[in-house]
Design a protein around this nucleic acid. Structure first.
Lengths: 343, 343
DNA sequence: TATACTCTTTGAACCGTTTCAATAAAATAA
DNA sequence: TTATTTTATTGAAACGGTTCAAAGAGTATA
C-alpha cells in the first residue's frame, strides 16, 4: 500500500504540486474555487502530508529536547521533568517526555526516535542492571548527538548528572546513630536497581565509618512501590517479637516509608515514639503524611535543570565539547518521623 | 551560519556522500581506514546528520502518538497519561508527552510540532477559557491530522473524550443531601478553568433537582493547588463563628480537599465528625490521607485509554472517519471523610 | 596472462515536500 | 486595440540524507 503524496492529490485535482502545497499552507494566492477543489480531494483521499518532508525544505528553527524517564508514575521523575522543563523553556526549548517503563528495548528505540525526529538532544535516565547494553549510546556518540545521562553508566564516556545517593543515605544513618539508635535496619528497593544498590552502599559506609559493623540481616529488600512494600513490611514485623524490632528504619524512598509507617501502625508501632523512620527523595506529599516524614531531600528540580543546562550547552556549541560529570548533594530534612532514642 | 551536511564531510574527507552515509549507518562494507578518517572528520566538524532527511528515504515505519497535557505536576494528567501509554503500547505505539503549562501559545506550537515530527496523531487537553482560539485545531483538520480532545471545545467538530463533571459533582451533593446535610458549601477551583465551571454547574443542578435553592455564598473559589487552597480555607474558617460553618464541603479536587482537611483541623474541626468533606478525582494518595477521603473516582486510566483507542483507530483508517464523542461517568467512593448528619 | 572473485567506493536517482522565478490568464489602463 | 498591471498557476530546483547498480582495485585461480 503506497503512501498518498502531494503528487497524487495534484494529479487527481488536475493542478500542480505547487498549487496543492499552497493550499495546504493557507497561502492567499490561490483562487477560492481551486482551493475548494483541492481541499475536497484531500479529504476524499484522506491525505496527510508528511511532516518530515515539509520540514526538510523549511527553515526548521524549532528547538526541542527529549527526556527519557524510566517510570512515568514515579514522582521522582515528575520532579526532575519539571526542572528540565523549566530550564529548557527559559532557553526557548520544548520538552518531549517519554517513558521507557524500565524496558531496555524502549530506551533504545526512543534514543533513535529522538534523533530521527530532529529533537535536538536527549536527557536519558538509563536502565542500568548489571551488564547494561550501551550500543545505542555509542550510536548517539557516533552521530555527535548531544545527550546527558541521569546516572553513571559504565563503559561509556558521556555527560552525567547524578545525585550522591551514597552520601545521602550515609547522612541519614549518621544522624540516627548520633541519636542513640543502634538497631537500625535498611529497607532496600528493587534488587536490580542501581539506586537501590547505591543506597545500600551508603548504609554500609555509614556503619564502617563509625567503626560499627553492618550485618547482612540489617538490610532487607522490600521493594520501592507502596503496595509491595506494605505487604513485605507487614511480613517483616510479623516475623519478630516486639523487642526484636529495630529502633529505626532507613527506607529506600518516601512511598516505601509511607507503607512502612502504615504497616507499623498495625503492630502498634507508632513513629516516632516506638520506631524512627526515614524516607528518601522528599516527594511533595512527604510532609503531608500522617506523621510528617523525616527524609532526604534530593534537589530534583535542580537535578533536572542542571541536566538541561549541560544538554543545551552541548546542543548550541558548534564544536564538540568535553564531557561533564556533575554530582549533586542531597540534604537531610528532619521532620516528625524520627526522634532521639531514650537510653 | 550554514548547516554542516554530509556533503561537507564527504568533501573534507575526500570520499563520496555514499561512503559517509555508510559510515554513519555502521555498514561493514567500509574499510577500517576509511571509516576512521570519516569518523574523525565528523568529530572535528561536530557533524550531526539531520534526522528528518534520513527518515525521508527510509521506510520510516515508526508508530508514535503525542499527548499534550496542561500541567505536568497534576496527578490527574499523570493517570491519564498512563492510560494513554498502556493502550498505545499495546497497539505498538510510543507516546511523546508534552505540557502546555496552560499556555495557549505552547498548545499551538506543539500541535504543529507533532505533525512536523511525523508523530502520527495527538491527544490534546485543550486550554478552554471563554473564547478559546481554535485555529490551530482547524489547521490540523485541514491536513487530516488525527487528534482527540480531552474536553469539549466549542466551534469545532472533533473527536472528544470527556468526563461528566456535572454529573459527578451532582452525585456527591445528592449523597450529602440524602444524609441530612443542608449547609453545604462548594469550594471551587480556578475561576477560568472549565473543569471548575462544570463542577459548579453540577453543584447547582443537584440543588435545583431537589428543589432546594443554591445561593451565591454557597460557592467559594479557593483554588486548585494545595498551597493556595490551604491559605484560602484558613481565611474561610476564620471569617465565621463555629455555628456558621457548613456541615459539609464539596471540594474541587483531592489536593484541595486535603488542604481543607488540614485547615479545618486548625479550627478544631475534625472530619467527619465536625464537618464532612468530599474530594474529586481520587488521586492515588486520597485513600492515604489522614482521614481517608470520600471522593469522586474518575476513571482516569480508562479516560486515557479510550482517547488512545479513538486516536489510533483514526490513524490507522485509510479513510476519514466520522468524529466520535464519548462521555465517561465518574463514580462516588465513600471513605471516611463524610458521615450522616445527626439531626 | 587472462579470468573470476571479492572488497570498496562512487554517483545518480530518489524520498515528499516547499520555494520561487517564469509564465499564462485576466483585468485594467491608455 | 494594445500595453500594462494584477492575479493565479506551473514546474524545476532544492532540502539532506539513503540506496544500490555499476565500476574500480586488488587477489586468488586457472
Amino acid at each position: 500500500m503506497k503512501r498518498i503524496t502531494i503528487t497524487d492529490i495534484a494529479k487527481r485535482a488536475g493542478v500542480s504540486k505547487g498549487t496543492v502545497s499552497a493550499v495546504i499552507n493557507g497561502k492567499n494566492t490561490v483562487r477560492a474555487e481551486t482551493r475548494n477543489l483541492v481541499t475536497s480531494v484531500m479529504k476524499e483521499m484522506n491525505f496527510r502530508p508528511k511532516g518530515m518532508a515539509r520540514n526538510l525544505k523549511q527553515k526548521n528553527t524549532d528547538k526541542s529536547i527529549g527526556l527519557i524517564v524510566r517510570d512515568l508514575m514515579n514522582p521522582f521523575f515528575t520532579s526532575v521533568a519539571i526542572g528540565v522543563k523549566d530550564y529548557a523553556n527559559q532557553k526557548g526549548y520544548d520538552v518531549f517526555i517519554t517513558s521507557s517503563e524500565n524496558d531496555h528495548e524502549r530506551e533504545v528505540k526512543f534514543s533513535q526516535l529522538f534523533s530521527n525526529k530532529d529533537i535536538k538532544g536527549a536527557i536519558i535516565s538509563p536502565i542500568v542492571e548489571g551488564s547494561s547494553e550501551i550500543e545505542h549510546l555509542f550510536k548517539l556518540k557516533m552521530i555527535n548527538y548531544p545527550f546527558v545521562l541521569l546516572e553513571d553508566v559504565r563503559g561509556i564516556q558521556a555527560n552525567v548528572v547524578s545525585i550522591d545517593n551514597v552520601k545521602a543515605i550515609k547522612i541519614a544513618v549518621q544522624y540516627l546513630i548520633d541519636n542513640g539508635h543502634t538497631k537500625i535496619v535498611h529497607f532496600a528497593g528493587d534488587p536490580i536497581s542501581s539506586h537501590s544498590l547505591e543506597r545500600i552502599e551508603g548504609f554500609r559506609k555509614a556503619f564502617s565509618e563509625c567503626s560499627l559493623s553492618c550485618t547482612h540481616e540489617m538490610i532487607v529488600t522490600i521493594g520501592s512501590i507502596y503496595e509491595t512494600a506494605f505487604i513485605n513490611a507487614i511480613q517483616f514485623f510479623k516475623n519478630r517479637s516486639r523487642d526484636q524490632h529495630p529502633t529505626a528504619i532507613v527506607c529506600f524512598n518516601d512511598q516505601q516509608a509511607l507503607a512502612v509507617l502504615d504497616a507499623a501502625i498495625q503492630f502498634d508501632l507508632q513513629a516516632p515514639d516506638d520506631i524512627s523512620i526515614t524516607g528518601n527523595e522528599d516527594i511533595a506529599f512527604a510532609r503531608l503524611f500522617p506523621v510528617p516524614l523525616t527524609t532526604i531531600h534530593a534537589p530534583l528540580n535542580e537535578f533536572g535543570m542542571k541536566a538541561a543546562e549541560i544538554l543545551i550547552r552541548n546542543i548550541e556549541s558548534p564544536t564538540l565539547l568535553p564531557v561533564e560529570n556533575l554530582v549533586l548533594d542531597a540534604n537531610f530534612i528532619i521532620r516528625k518521623s524520627t526522634k532521639q532514642l531514650n537510653s
